[in-house]
Design a protein around this nucleic acid. Sequence first.
DNA 1: ATGCAAACGTTGCACAGTCCAAATGTTTGT
DNA 2: ACAAACATTTGGACTGTGCAACGTTTGCAT
Lengths: 184, 184
Amino acid sequence: MAAHEQPREDRPPDRGGDDDVDEVTRAVLTASRLLVAVSARSLAAVEDRVTLPQFRLLVVLSTNSNAKLVTLADRLGVNPSTAMRMLDRLIAAGLAEREVNPANRRETVLRVTPEGRRLVDDVTAGRRREIAAIVERLAPEQRTALIDALTAFTVAGGEPPVPGDGSDGYPLGWTSDLPAHHDV
Amino acid sequence: MAAHEQPREDRPPDRGGDDDVDEVTRAVLTASRLLVAVSARSLAAVEDRVTLPQFRLLVVLSTNSNAKLVTLADRLGVNPSTAMRMLDRLIAAGLAEREVNPANRRETVLRVTPEGRRLVDDVTAGRRREIAAIVERLAPEQRTALIDALTAFTVAGGEPPVPGDGSDGYPLGWTSDLPAHHDV
DNA sequence: ATGCAAACGTTGCACAGTCCAAATGTTTGT
DNA sequence: ACAAACATTTGGACTGTGCAACGTTTGCAT
């Protein structure tokens, strides 16, 4: 993997040499695979009811109730027309609702139906349950060590460590998707 | 860095209760988001040359050189016909090659071209570089702690900790995909 | 008040990814 | 020699996706 010799020569005497970094990186990458696998498993349960992009829309809609189309599309990072048609299908499936905003008639108000909400909750709950099951196999000391290590890692990565976390532990962000993906 | 001074009022002597598990789960989920973001960033560089599924195929093809179509489709978890057409496009883009296997003429031999290989290498190298950059911001003790914690977590998750790891630490599995996904 | 520009949702069009089925060509086992 | 098994390929249908165009509704400045 010495494809490009980034002039890394000048290595500080710190005992965290490249080997060290490399090992940690490898550990991170490996753990990532597990996480993705967990995600994929929890998602598998619903993939015959909705497609993955649809589920993603549902999740975003769950945490952004009464959003208008452009907002939603923006959150998803897709074109409004894409969100539009996905919504059409979700609505047809009874998982979402659309309604013209009476206060501003050029907008629409989108909502997830109770059934759609349940679908999302099931998946996110399943994912948390799976991770919790893994965590429970760890000894108490290992758990706190994991928290500390992960928190340090997250902080180093610049992401706000456990920001709001949607109160009672909701989807918030990340994976959930990563359907077949796995590899790559 | 005991950054989890959560107002978790009294750290109950219980050590290992549900609160504990919940906190670890939250930390894991948060770290996951960071990982996904890193992945997405490193992927962004090529998303105007190939689509994500195409890139995924390229990665799998890189690590399974001279594979035949069905094998490839199997690894990707898609229908052979899907792999077929993606390959058509990749070949048209000069990133892959197809050739009838002279030893068994009902099969074809698929290969990634040097250019395709370079594309993949760039992305995977970028991802490792990004993670390494984060890891480098950690103190040596934190690094080893992270390795230990992650290894324990991975083991508890049932995945073989750093199995073969494609020799010199290559893509192997996971994310790489997770394009826009992020949320969900 | 009038009118024009911006914001929205919506629809048309093109194309990638996907699956299922079916057609075609190749090997293999009997 | 033939049928069964296997591999690639093509046809058809549908979702996801972006871009561009259109009609409606607002907001604002003249």
